[in-house]
Design a protein around this nucleic acid. Structure first.
Lengths: 204, 204
DNA sequence: GAAAACCGACCCACTGGTCGGGAAATTCCT
DNA sequence: AGGAATTTCCCGACCAGTGGGTCGGTTTTC
């Protein structure tokens, strides 16, 4: 096993344990055992536990950004791109469960120096989705809505799934993305609800 | 200060710290200091740190359930009840930030005996929302949709807000609930999207 | 005067990280 | 090619700080 392979292995096994047990409840010995190696060996690949956490964060957000960018030249319309983004996120819950939970729950545990760069990438990705929604509004496929808020709603639907989604279940991640996209784009309501009034002001 | 008041105070201060620093990174000394008391005194009110965690969980889910039940006799229609549920959740992010984060992120840290009862209540609340959506489908205000999935989408939008919502911000929780409810019920799409085809099958 | 509330000092298991050295693979030299 | 030199990879044993929890006792309240 090459050096980079082992490094990779440590990251993904650690992510799995953090997912199962949480970051602080997982010890370096746990990780070492899971990898099949003694604790000091871990320190040959990572200077500290926090650096493993950092590697997980970086790997995850890079995956998301890369997937989107690989698609950005295809000329898909805004609503289609939105579906693909949702599918990206949900797919990573199949393939990178540990990364997802760590990325969402353990960013506060990141060492101070690492937080900045990660947050920058996170913001960049949020910005991508906002811009995408804004483009949809511009082109007329989405109604007038605050892109920031709509992006947060989208992320909410998808990101929250890490709390309940289990890979082996009945629903493949892509189908799930499609259902959620459907709720978001077409809404749950029928014609029996009167859009004009309902969209105005919240009832007290 | 009465005994129950102090108990209450410990719970809410602890929740605040857990929110800020995370459960395992917060020490009993931290909590004691925050409450203005010495560590052993905490053990006069709670047998262990885990029991504080448990108290937070219970308080939170009870709040949600109670609020819904207080409303269940009012004869509101399904879509209105759904809005109220969303508003409940988001309001607790203003008034009980710590509880929210703890409830969502630290259920795995609960001692084994406590997990069961809490999960039962959690399931009960999820069931309430599912039934509410099912009733809306039944009465024709919501289109044919899987109530379970639609509930998960709803929870996603609202629950995820604990990650970014800050009480002092521009948006009051009720307005936010209304915006999200609007997205969910009416959708983001305009007439330029063709509902019939789009709702069918996910594109490969 | 007894029960409830409170605390300083202590204990000890646990865990992130280190140390010094041993095996295994690579490179270098002749 | 073959053996020495060096780097890479690996580990058993240890260290020191931390933090949940306890003990024995004092103060406050009723």
């Amino acid at each position: 096993m090459s050096s980079t392979e082992r490094r990779q292995q440590i990251v993904s096994r650690a992510a799995g344990l953090f997912d199962k047990t949480g970051y602080s409840s997982t010890t370096m010995d746990d990780i070492a055992k899971e990898v099949g190696v003694a604790k000091p060996t871990l320190y040959h690949y990572f200077p500290s536990k926090d650096d493993i956490l950092h590697a997980i964060h970086e790997e995850f957000i890079d995956l998301l950004i890369d997937r989107h960018e690989a698609r950005s030249e295809t000329g898909l319309r805004a609503e289609q791109l939105l579906l693909e983004v949702m599918a990206d996120i949900l797919e990573l819950m199949e393939t990178h469960r540990g990364h997802v939970r760590v990325f969402f729950e353990h960013h506060r545990e990141l060492p101070a120096e690492a937080r900045g760069p990660i947050k920058a990438k996170r913001d960049r990705y949020e910005r991508i989705v906002e811009d995408l929604i804004a483009a949809g509004v511009e082109s007329g496929v989405f109604r007038q809505a605050d892109p920031h808020l709509a992006a947060l709603a989208t992320f909410g639907m998808c990101n929250w799934a890490y709390q309940w989604y289990r890979p082996g279940g009945a629903l493949r991640s892509r189908e799930l993305a499609y259902q959620f996209w459907n709720y978001l784009v077409y809404g749950l309501g029928t014609d029996q609800l009167t859009p004009a009034t309902a969209r105005a002001v919240p009832p007290a």
